[in-house]
Amino acid sequence: MDLGLDVTERNGFAVLAVRGEVDVYTAPRLRERLVEMVSQGHHQVVVDLEGVDFLDSTGLGVLVGGLKRLRSHEGDLTLVCTQRRILKVFEITGLTKVFQIFDDVDAATGGASSD
């Protein structure tokens, strides 16, 4: 199962574009990538979930872990997502109160919330 993890930089943010399915099998790769980004000094991270086809509770745990790690470095992790099926997972679990979720990368790196 392919999981795409591509990092670019925009406006001082590191943007991690995730593609494919994030589940109990692939989530460890996402965790490793986030840990690597933090260790490389990227402390303002945007995770772009627009290319994600599937996200389970393990993936949620990895994203919250990334957020916690970044906040311990005075940083932040925000999300980009407009897909109903993925947003629903955040809404059901109450994680919309934990993450800032933006409509697109421009908004996430410019600071405009979609809420």
Partner: peptide, 18 residues
Amino acid sequence: LPPDPGRAALEGELSLPL
């Protein structure tokens, strides 16, 4: 439903509520 969803996510407790 866990009162602290962030902690619940870290501890793998969101699966059944989902």
